[in-house]
Simulated assay, not measured.
Amino acid sequence: MFFALPLFSSIYFSFTTYSILQPGEFIGLQNYKDLFHDDLFWKSIYNTIYFAVFFVPLSIIFGVALAMMLNMKVKGMAVYRTIYFLPTLVPHVAMAVLWMWLLNPGFGLINGTLDFFGIQGPNWLGSVTWSKPSLILMSLWGIGQAVIIYLAGLGDIPEEFYEAAEVDGANWIQRTFHITLPLLTPVIFFNLVMGTIGAFQQFTLPYTMTNGQGSPAESLTFYVMYLYDNGFKFFKMGYASAMAWILFVIIMALTAVIFMTSKRWVHYQGE
C-alpha cells in the first residue's frame, strides 16, 4: 500500500497532467517530450553528473586513505576515529549553514586562511566556476560513514597475508597494492554503488544553500531539486513523475554497468 501503490501510480501520472489539486488528463508521452526540450532539465542533468563524476571517485580515494590511517595501531586511535565520524552526525541543513559561513568570501575561515598565505580566495558559492567544487568539498567532509565501512573491510583481511608478504620482503606500497586494495574491492564496490545512487539524489545541501533557487546561474540546480520544484512548487506532478522515472532508468543503467564490470576488478576471499 505504501510502496507499490505510489510506485505504479507514478508511472500512470507521468502520462498525465496530474497536478495534485486536479486529476489531470491523459496526454501520453507529452511530458517526456517536453522534458527533452526543457533547457533547465538538461542543465540539472549536467550539474548532477558533474557532481557524481568528481565526488564518487574522490570519496572512495579519501575514504580508503582515511580508513588505512585510522587502522594503524596508534595510541588513542578510538578518539581519532570518533573525530572523523562526527561530521556524519551533523544534519545536512546545519552542515550547509556551517559551510556557508566557512566559505563566505568576505569573512569566511577558508578565505581568511588563504589571505594569510597571500592567496586571494574565490567567491566560492557565488561563482559558477567554484559553486559545484565547493559542494563536493562539503560532501567529502561527511564521508565518515563510508570510512567506517572501509575500516570493517580492512579488519576482515587476515593478518597471515601481511606476515607472508613481509617474509617475502614486500614493502608497504607493495603490500597495499597487492593485498589491501584487492581484498578491499568488495567494500569499494558496495560504496561505489551506494555513492553513485546517493550522488544522483543530491538535494538537501544545494537546496538549503540556495534557498531552492540553484544560484548562481542555476549552477547548483540538481536533478532532484528540479524534480521537487516541479512537483511541489509548480504542482506539475505528472511532469515530476516523468522526471522521477527518467532518474530511475539512469540510476538502474549505471548500477547495471557497475555490476557487469565488477567481475573484472572485484576480488573475493577464497576465489
Rank of each mutant, 00 (worst) to 15 (best):
F2V: 13
A4H: 07
L5W: 10
L5F: 03
P6C: 02
S10Y: 02
F15A: 04
T17I: 01
T17E: 07
L21F: 10
L21Q: 13
Q22V: 10
G24E: 14
E25M: 06
L29W: 14
D34N: 15
F36S: 02
D39R: 11
F41G: 09
F41E: 10
S44T: 04
Y46T: 08
F55S: 13
I61A: 14
F62T: 06
L66G: 04
M69D: 04
L70F: 09
N71P: 09
K73R: 14
M77I: 14
M77S: 05
P91A: 03
V97E: 15
M100C: 02
W101A: 04
N104R: 00
P105D: 01
F107I: 08
T113R: 10
I119Q: 00
Q120Y: 11
Q120H: 14
S127K: 07
S127E: 00
T129A: 09
T129L: 07
W130H: 07
L135N: 02
L135F: 05
M138E: 10
S139I: 08
L140D: 01
G142Y: 09
G144T: 08
A146L: 06
A152L: 08
P158V: 03
E166G: 00
H178Y: 12
T180W: 01
L183A: 05
P186C: 06
V187H: 04
N191V: 09
V193T: 01
G198M: 11
A199W: 10
T204K: 05
Y207Q: 13
G212M: 01
G214Y: 14
E218K: 15
E218A: 14
F222L: 13
F222N: 12
D229N: 09
D229G: 10
N230L: 06
F232N: 07
A240V: 06
A240N: 06
A244Y: 02
A244M: 13
W245I: 11
V249N: 08
I251R: 12
A253P: 03
A253M: 12
T255Q: 04
A256K: 11
V257H: 13
W265E: 12
V266E: 00
Q269W: 04
Q269F: 03
